[in-house]
Each structure stands twice: as C-alpha cells, then as structure tokens.
Simulated assay, not measured.
Amino acid sequence: MIFMKHLSIHVYGLVQGVGFRYSVVQVAADSEVTGTVENEMDGSVKIEAEGDEMKLYSFLQKIRQSPSPFAKVKTVDYDFSDNLKNYQKFTVIG
C-alpha cells in the first residue's frame, strides 16, 4: 500500500553556491519524489517533497549524507505532514 506524504526539509551548512540544489533534483528523480528546492536568505536550503512515505525516508537519508561533493551539511530539520500540494515534478526555485 502506498502512503503519500509531504516532507518539508531545511538544510543548514555550506549548501549554497556548491551545486547542492541541482544534486537534490537528481536525488529526487532517483527517489521518485516531486517538489521544490530553493535557497533561503539565511544561507540554508528549503526542500518541499512529496511521494510515497518510504521513498521520502530514503530521499531524506540521501539529503542528510549531502548529495553534492562540495556541500557540507551540518543540520537537517524536517517535518512530515498529510498536507499534499500535488507537485507534478521536482524543480529548482530561484
């Protein structure tokens, strides 16, 4: 059975200007999740993702391990919810 969830993630560390967002897009494609990724003014990166709950857990684990070889992930805050936004694909904002 598939349980669709929404996952909000904030990634802190050296995650801007190092190709992190584009690495996240590749991880999302590999994980079969949809959503968005964007830089925040405080230097963090915000990710909104949706998909099967088990695939989202896999996606989150890959984000924690830093998909970009140049990024340095320090902290990852996340929250699962049932409030789906029904994204059609995964895109970079900004």
Results as ranks from 00 to 15, higher is better:
residue 1 M to F: 09
residue 2 I to F: 08
residue 2 I to C: 14
residue 3 F to K: 15
residue 3 F to T: 15
residue 4 M to W: 13
residue 4 M to D: 11
residue 5 K to G: 02
residue 5 K to L: 03
residue 6 H to C: 06
residue 6 H to M: 05
residue 7 L to M: 05
residue 7 L to N: 01
residue 8 S to K: 01
residue 9 I to F: 01
residue 9 I to M: 03
residue 10 H to Q: 07
residue 12 Y to P: 04
residue 12 Y to I: 13
residue 13 G to T: 01
residue 14 L to M: 07
residue 14 L to Y: 01
residue 15 V to S: 02
residue 16 Q to P: 08
residue 17 G to V: 05
residue 18 V to K: 00
residue 19 G to A: 10
residue 20 F to R: 02
residue 20 F to D: 01
residue 20 F to P: 03
residue 21 R to C: 05
residue 22 Y to I: 04
residue 26 Q to M: 06
residue 27 V to M: 12
residue 28 A to E: 03
residue 29 A to P: 08
residue 32 E to I: 10
residue 33 V to N: 12
residue 34 T to C: 09
residue 34 T to L: 06
residue 35 G to K: 04
residue 35 G to H: 05
residue 35 G to I: 06
residue 36 T to V: 08
residue 36 T to E: 00
residue 37 V to E: 07
residue 37 V to Y: 06
residue 37 V to T: 14
residue 38 E to R: 13
residue 39 N to W: 07
residue 39 N to S: 08
residue 41 M to C: 15
residue 41 M to D: 15
residue 43 G to F: 15
residue 43 G to P: 11
residue 44 S to N: 09
residue 44 S to Y: 10
residue 44 S to A: 11
residue 45 V to L: 04
residue 46 K to D: 04
residue 46 K to Y: 10
residue 46 K to I: 13
residue 47 I to D: 03
residue 48 E to S: 07
residue 48 E to I: 13
residue 48 E to F: 08
residue 48 E to R: 06
residue 50 E to C: 14
residue 50 E to A: 08
residue 50 E to K: 12
residue 51 G to F: 03
residue 52 D to K: 03
residue 52 D to P: 06
residue 52 D to F: 03
residue 52 D to W: 00
residue 53 E to K: 04
residue 53 E to H: 09
residue 55 K to T: 13
residue 55 K to S: 15
residue 55 K to L: 12
residue 57 Y to G: 10
residue 57 Y to F: 06
residue 58 S to A: 13
residue 58 S to G: 13
residue 59 F to S: 06
residue 59 F to M: 09
residue 60 L to K: 03
residue 61 Q to F: 11
residue 61 Q to N: 05
residue 62 K to S: 11
residue 62 K to A: 12
residue 63 I to L: 14
residue 63 I to E: 01
residue 64 R to S: 00
residue 64 R to V: 02
residue 66 S to T: 15
residue 69 P to Q: 10
residue 72 K to L: 09
residue 72 K to E: 02
residue 72 K to V: 07
residue 72 K to W: 04
residue 74 K to R: 11
residue 74 K to N: 14
residue 74 K to D: 13
residue 75 T to L: 09
residue 76 V to R: 02
residue 76 V to E: 01
residue 79 D to Q: 14
residue 79 D to W: 04
residue 80 F to L: 01
residue 80 F to C: 00
residue 80 F to V: 08
residue 81 S to E: 10
residue 81 S to F: 10
residue 81 S to C: 13
residue 82 D to N: 15
residue 82 D to Y: 01
residue 83 N to V: 05
residue 83 N to A: 06
residue 85 K to W: 09
residue 86 N to T: 15
residue 86 N to V: 12
residue 87 Y to T: 08
residue 88 Q to M: 08
residue 88 Q to C: 00
residue 89 K to S: 11
residue 90 F to R: 02
residue 90 F to M: 05
residue 90 F to I: 01
residue 91 T to N: 04
residue 91 T to F: 12
residue 91 T to E: 01
residue 92 V to I: 11
residue 92 V to S: 09
residue 92 V to N: 12
residue 93 I to Q: 05
residue 94 G to E: 04
